[in-house]
């Protein structure tokens, strides 16, 4: 990060304009709506907020949402890395097709994804009928949906980094006597790690807020497969806007804390692994 302050502006012109524009845009698009949510929740009073936050059903839904989102993001980080590696390092027939297919979870309306997944994994579905355990309408179903929607985030953040990765580094490593696993573990992976973390964070953040695709495959049984966004919808359905914004605020705070943690971790690895900042 450059040390630009108001007193010693960058050599580039237009700092004032871009700075003002950044804040205006950020305020209009992100801060205002979020501020509205928090304000509305704040108007409930601490006692009611504490009551909503400690409701066992809400807590259980938060556990389901955040727990499964983390697990799904971990799985996506692993397989997304492999997929990105294959797509950038190898050329094979149909590579472009696979590459394009990775974006489908982005483009597909989430409800369509949810219905398709439910149809496939239902007890009478293509895959579901061969499995000895139930996938659709259990927490496992939620997990499947979250993996589906999170995959492109990891692949698409890793791809450019992998393409830019200097092959000479690997060659140098080999020349200096490192075998393949060592090169992979000590040269390639550390370079990729910050990008991997970013992809992980994006996949996680997307999964936490996901409603459309999950709702069709979740089963939505209280205390078992009920996700936090569904609790918000329920509160809205009772015309209880206050309670809905309160749950939203809780989710917002947890997400913010987790994303901050991931960002700090990323900054730390960047520093530690000697990236130029």
């Amino acid at each position: 990060m450059s040390r630009t302050t108001f007193r010693t502006p960058s050599a580039l012109p237009g700092f004032g304009l871009t700075f003002g524009f950044t804040w205006l845009w950020l305020t209009l698009i992100i801060l205002l709506p979020l501020g509205g949510v928090i304000l509305w929740a704040g108007s409930l009073g601490l006692e009611r907020l504490a009551q909503i936050a400690s409701d066992p059903r809400t807590l259980s839904a938060l556990r389901v949402s955040f727990g499964l989102s983390l697990l799904a993001a971990v799985l996506n980080a692993v397989f997304g890395l492999i997929l990105a590696w294959i797509l950038t390092r190898y050329d094979f027939p149909g590579r472009r097709l696979v590459d394009a297919a990775v974006d489908l979870p982005f483009a597909l309306p989430t409800a369509v994804a949810g219905i398709a997944l439910a149809a496939i994994y239902a007890p009478n579905g293509w895959i579901g009928q061969w499995l000895p355990f139930k996938v659709a309408y259990t927490p496992l179903g939620i997990f499947v949906a979250l993996v589906f929607i999170g995959l492109p985030f990891v692949v698409r953040t890793l791809q450019p980094v992998l393409t830019d990765l200097d092959r000479e580094l690997e060659e140098a490593s080999a020349t200096l006597g490192a075998d393949r696993p060592v090169t992979l573990l000590r040269v390639v992976l550390p370079t990729l790690f910050p990008a991997l973390l970013t992809g992980f964070a994006l996949a996680f953040a997307r999964a936490v807020g996901e409603y459309g695709s999950v709702i069709f495959i979740a089963g939505n049984v209280p205390y078992v497969s009920e996700i936090a966004p569904l609790i918000i919808i329920m509160k809205l359905e009772e015309f209880d806007y206050g309670a809905a914004t309160a749950v939203a605020t809780i989710m917002l705070l947890i997400s913010f804390a987790l994303l901050l943690l991931i960002n700090l971790l990323e900054a730390w690895t960047r520093r530690r692994l000697g990236h130029v900042r």
Partner: peptide, 21 residues
């Protein structure tokens, strides 16, 4: 005895009629 609580009536009809639950 309810394994799935869909969010709307049409969703339940689908679950019953098409998913065979």
């Amino acid at each position: 005895h309810v394994p799935v609580l869909d969010s709307g009536a049409r969703g339940s009809t689908t679950t019953f009629a098409q998913r065979g639950l």
